[in-house]
Design a protein around this nucleic acid. Structure first.
Lengths: 103, 103
DNA sequence: CAGTTTCATAAGTAATCGCTTATTTATAGC
DNA sequence: GCTATAAATAAGCGATTACTTATGAAACTG
């Protein structure tokens, strides 16, 4: 649930992986090249992100391409909306968020 | 920074504390009463939440009342806006959420 | 085929985490 | 003053975490 989500994004290296994948598909070697950790570490982070529903994979020959799964953030959006719904003044901020995304 | 934020919300007990405080101010004894952990544990969680900018405290005699700090979620909103702005279809989802909150 | 590349998995390890009990600090009431 | 209460801090402990090296399993390449 949102449990795994927060956990997955709590690690800086893992969040870096996710943010990179949000910009576009990439294989494990590519990610490893720009991340200052070993390949197994990257694979482990990818497994965690996948477990949280944040990424999906696509095999192509011996490479595995990963990409961010947009819907994976929905539980986080829901949680934020539910939580900040308790503060009327925060809703305006949510509206801001929408405006900023909308272009 | 958003690092501490994700970390703080990654623990279920700590998120429970925050969600409870989002509903209204409460002192440490009150939180301890409904949380199935000891008072020091609660104090430690509160310290972490405070470090993440999610809660603030108010001393009153020998009690300390904590409350959720709505603006503490702003970095999370910003991060979401930055990240999911890459996917147009996510915007519609947020629009829906707002509409449902709007009553 | 043997050799290489790509990735996942296994095993081990140091550091961190969330919790506990024990203690300390501060305030209140007698 | 003495005792009780509220909360923070200290110290210690088992579990988890993020990493490493080593190995395994597939898929391409000559």
């Amino acid at each position: 649930m949102e449990q795994a989500l927060f956990r997955a994004l709590g690690d800086p290296t893992r969040r870096a992986v996710y943010e990179r994948l949000a910009a576009g598909e990439m294989n494990v070697a590519g990610l490893t090249a720009l991340l200052d950790v070993t390949q197994p570490a990257v694979s482990q982070h990818l497994a965690a992100l996948k477990g949280a529903g944040l990424v999906s994979e696509r095999r192509e020959g011996r490479r595995t391409y990963y990409k961010a799964e947009p819907a994976g953030l929905d539980p986080l959006m829901d949680w934020m909306a539910r939580t900040s719904a308790l503060w009327p003044e925060r809703i305006e901020r949510l509206r801001d968020l929408l405006k900023r995304m909308d272009r």
